[in-house]
């Protein structure tokens, strides 16, 4: 797993109050316990902590139909042009 993957995983972990163990790429997004605020908060923290731009518009469903944390990480990396 790349450094960026690990950094993203760490940020997701902070918001995953529904989990009793650490999230992995295979963890289901529905198991994270995140709510309507969490995705924008995660994107914001990614931008702040990694110093990158993530051009995300919640109206465009740019994150697609994410099933797993791996899907989420890949979607964020794609938006940031870091894939």
């Amino acid at each position: 797993m790349s450094d960026m993957d690990q950094q993203l995983l760490a940020i997701i972990k902070e918001h995953a109050i529904g989990l009793t163990s650490d999230p992995t790429r295979e963890t289901l997004v529905t198991d994270l316990g995140i709510d309507s605020f969490s995705i924008v908060e995660i994107i914001y923290e990614v931008e702040e902590k990694l110093g990158i731009e993530v051009p995300f518009n919640a109206n465009e469903n740019a994150l697609g139909d994410m099933k797993t944390v791996g899907d989420l990480i890949d979607a964020v990396k794609k938006l940031a042009g870091k894939e």
């Binding site: 605020f37 924008v40 908060e41 994107i43 914001y44 931008e47 702040e48």
Partner: peptide
């Protein structure tokens, strides 16, 4: 020169 927190309005 930083962006406001995305939940600022709420």
């Amino acid at each position: 020169g930083r962006k406001p927190h995305p939940l600022s309005i709420l």
